[in-house]
Design a binder for these strands. Sequence first.
DNA 1: TCTAAGTCGTACGTAGGTGTACGAGATAGC
DNA 2: GCTATCTCGTACACCTACGTACGACTTAGA
Lengths: 198, 198
Amino acid sequence: MAPTEARPQPRRRADAERSIARIVAAARSSLSRDPDATVDEIALAAGVGRMTVYGHFRTRPELVEAALAEALRVGEETLSAVDLTGDPREALARLLASSWSLVSESSALLAAAEKVLPEGRVRELHGSAADRVEALLGRGQADGVFRTDLPMSWLVNVIQHVLHGAAEEVRAGRLAEHEVARVVTRTVLSMLTDRPAH
Amino acid sequence: MAPTEARPQPRRRADAERSIARIVAAARSSLSRDPDATVDEIALAAGVGRMTVYGHFRTRPELVEAALAEALRVGEETLSAVDLTGDPREALARLLASSWSLVSESSALLAAAEKVLPEGRVRELHGSAADRVEALLGRGQADGVFRTDLPMSWLVNVIQHVLHGAAEEVRAGRLAEHEVARVVTRTVLSMLTDRPAH
DNA sequence: TCTAAGTCGTACGTAGGTGTACGAGATAGC
DNA sequence: GCTATCTCGTACACCTACGTACGACTTAGA
């Protein structure tokens, strides 16, 4: 139950605090690019020695978890700043525009975490992120603007995958950064609002 | 240039032929579940000793490539049996229905391959698979039933990701096998045929 | 300025995976 | 039934990554 960044008792020095922040940031970006990134690589990216990393994180899984927790925390923060009231379609568009890069980053981090963290631990941390989307979709359904002929869990999941796909296209150079919001929004809204005649 | 299953000169014995087939099949299913599957695990799954594997494939990458090539070959075979004439929407539905499991399997295999095969080698092998979808989408656009406001490469890619998402849902037990075709078809067709007012 | 805290290099032990060497035994195919 | 081919266990060398031990140096903070 204790948060990942719990301090047992001893207060940490300011430089240690800074090191930890740099290490976690490096872990996020390294693991997002390569879920198998080495502790050594992460240390290098953070500009610290490998030993310093082990001074703050006992094992690699612990570091991965910290990186994931931080990413989710930032994500949570960003998402909670988005105005989700008004027309569900526009609310969703705002949500997607401001979070696509975050979500796609997390998806690689999530993969890294699932490899090394005990079963279920990831979902435990991830919990509320998907809930927010689900709540918005639910409202849109109640308002009659979002489809109801497909399972909710599917809709949430497929949005995640579309975002992941967008990240991949950007990485491959087939889609420009400034195009993403438009493309993703149109794609997702089409998926959600279409009412097939069949 | 020689195909993966090239026989240099010496004709192989029937039991060797059988072993190879079992190894490749095991590699496909093992690597689809876990892109980091060990040679040992694959051998075990194939019901042969690890040494037998090395008797036919010099290195792990070579085995991965063989598995991928085989999966693509089977995929090619299945896809080419699908009737792609007539209404592009119905043609696409047929294509999705008969290939979703194949595509989603390949996507994990592709990940395995990209880790160990030289840059570009994967795309070289994969080539024609995506082309077929692209051709169909192009025809649908020409017929005026598929949208043209988003990049073609994006459409192809996003279909791939939707299929991947479907595979994940099935694996997680949130979507029943017999539901997949319906769900995927509706989702993809909505994406392709919707004409946003914005 | 003094000291506890933090940094980080070198060196080491361990674990797991890859690929090679050897060789005994099984079997397909003529 | 003979022989080349195939199977596959054991053993080994090698590599990479993890995590620990030690210790010298640096620096924050009172």
